[in-house]
Amino acid sequence: MFVFSARFHIFLPTDSLKGKRGIVKSLIARARQNFNVAAAEVDLQDVHGETVIAFVTVGGDRARVRHLLDRVEEWIAEERPDVEVVASLIEEC
């Protein structure tokens, strides 16, 4: 069994916490639905305009699990071209 996590530091096109909350909740919900991953906002909760979202997944094939999290990053860029993933870290736990 292989456990991988990904942390994405993301810049958001908003100047309010309310706007940020809508974007973050949407990204997390849709990623959970599309990729069957666990997800949460893990840092910068009180900073409008940027966030850190973490995703975690488990599987029996190391390459496949790692590739799934790479696809999540690509999906964020495609799904929301108005947000910018400025840093990402994918690691085996």
Rank of each mutant, 00 (worst) to 15 (best):
R32F: 13
D15K: 08
I53W: 00
S26G: 08
E91H: 04
P13G: 07
F35D: 06
P81D: 13
R64P: 08
I90D: 07
D61E: 11
R66V: 08
G19R: 02
A39H: 01
L44H: 13
V52L: 08
G60V: 13
S16L: 06
L44P: 07
R80N: 09
E41N: 07
S26K: 01
V85P: 04
N34A: 13
A54V: 03
D61T: 11
V85T: 05
F35W: 02
E50V: 09
D82K: 03
V47H: 02
I90Y: 04
I53E: 00
V65D: 05
V56K: 00
L69P: 09
H67K: 14
V85Y: 02
N36C: 04
R32Q: 15
A40M: 12
D46V: 11
H9C: 11
L44S: 11
H9S: 11
G22L: 05
D43V: 13
F2D: 01
E92P: 10
L69F: 12
A29T: 05
K18N: 13
L89Y: 03
G22T: 06
L68Y: 09
L27H: 01
L68W: 09
S5T: 15
H48F: 15
S88L: 13
A29C: 08
G19F: 06
S5V: 14
N34T: 14
V24M: 00
A31V: 13
G59F: 05
V3P: 04
E73Q: 10
F35C: 04
T51F: 03
E78W: 09
G59Q: 06
Q45F: 12
L68N: 06
E74P: 10
K18A: 14
P81F: 14
Q33H: 11
V37Y: 00
T14Q: 02
F2W: 07
N34W: 11
M1C: 07
A63C: 06
A39M: 07
D43P: 12
I10D: 05
E41P: 11
R64V: 14
A39K: 01
F4R: 00
A54H: 00
E84K: 02
V86Y: 07
V47Y: 06
D70Q: 14
T57V: 10
C93Y: 15
D15W: 04
R66D: 07
V24W: 00
V86K: 04
A54Y: 00
K18Q: 12
V3E: 07
A77W: 09
